[in-house]
């Protein structure tokens, strides 16, 4: 790792002002599960690390009226074990429980999981790819079994987060703080396609950090779940995952949010799958149709067509859990 200075931020204000003071040279860091790996590999070479873990108060889960507030420094393991979160947001807790390994869940944070960088082997490896300021994405012509089937181009990474699909399915909002002020946006709008920014996965400016996640308490009749399909049973990124939140009334689906991981450069909300469910009973037929509809726009690369079939299957499977 190249040498750098460590600055322990003691407040959000101090953190964002430190980031603003060192444009292009400072990066925020929480547990470092992802960023330290990038620094060891020379993908990122910051001169200053702004340590966010020393900011008090950002590691709390708080129940508010109508919502639960999640501090970005809450460890993933705490989400996985939270009875409060399990009561209201099963998809969130199920997603947290299958992230990485116990050692990473013990330290890795909610904010870090949402802001982690792609796992594409060209991005992580010694390739000057599009995402690292190079000329082109190697995936379409190269080894692309883990790459995007939806929303790809000109970069074909997939977003690796498990919490993001779950939180978007649960209609979470994100508060972002920067040196020019705060803004709160739907988490869905936090992520951006490569057509918007080919080098970043989200809208954070260099002097901005995530400072809160707000999840609205679900309306009565809402159920949610997260299905993560891996190559092995544990300690892996998703080949494909799906978070589903469904509200039913009088035997019919009143509201549906279906968000996929591992298929697109952003957590991929399938409006097609949602439309296939609204106003109809949730059963084996409609669950299968939702999966089929979700995959209509899919454009697999040479080696990842299996993700289309897998996506259909796990969308159906996740929905059947919610009947």
């Amino acid at each position: 790792m190249k040498a750098f200075a460590n600055k322990n931020a003691t407040s959000i204000r101090e953190a964002v002002s430190l980031l603003a003071q060192h444009p292009g040279k400072a990066l925020p860091i929480a547990a470092g599960s992802d960023l330290l790996g990038e620094m060891k590999d020379g993908i990122e070479t910051p001169e200053v690390l702004v340590n966010l873990k020393t900011i008090p108060g950002l590691d709390k889960i708080r129940q508010q009226s109508g919502a639960v507030s999640i501090g970005p420094l809450v460890p993933v393991a705490e989400v996985a074990e939270s009875q409060l979160l399990h009561t209201h947001f099963p998809a969130f807790v199920e997603a947290a429980a299958v992230i990485a390994s116990p050692q990473i869940r013990n330290v890795g944070t909610v904010g870090g999981n949402l802001c982690q960088r792609p796992r594409c082997w060209y991005y992580r490896g010694p390739f000057r790819c599009l995402r690292k300021g190079g000329e082109f994405c190697y995936a379409p012509m190269g080894e692309n079994r883990y790459h995007a089937i939806l929303g790809g181009g000109p970069s074909f990474i997939v977003h690796p987060s498990d919490l993001a699909p779950a939180l978007i399915a649960l209609d979470a909002k994100a508060r972002i703080s920067g040196s020019s002020g705060d803004r709160t946006i739907p988490l869905e709008q936090f992520f951006v396609l490569p057509t918007v920014n080919v080098q970043r996965e989200n809208i954070l400016r260099p002097d901005e950090i995530l400072t809160e996640i707000l999840i609205p308490l679900p309306a009565p009749g809402t159920r949610s779940t997260y299905w993560k399909q891996m190559e092995r049973d544990a300690w892996d990124f998703a080949l494909v995952s799906v978070a589903a939140a469904i509200r039913q009334r009088d035997g019919k689906v009143e509201q549906a949010r279906i968000v996929m991981g591992g298929v697109a450069p952003i957590p991929w909300r399938s409006h097609e799958a949602e439309a296939a469910l609204i106003g109809r009973p949730l059963d084996a037929t409609t669950a299968a149709q939702a999966g089929d509809k979700a995959m209509e726009p899919a454009q697999p690369l040479r080696d990842n067509a299996y993700k289309v079939a897998l996506s259909r299957a796990i969308i159906r499977g996740a929905l059947l859990r919610l009947i």
Binding site: N6, A31, G32, L36, G37, Q103, I104, N106, V107
Partner: peptide
């Protein structure tokens, strides 16, 4: 009290 990867802690 918690298991962590010491290679990933500064």
């Amino acid at each position: 009290g918690k298991a962590v990867y010491s290679c990933s802690q500064l």
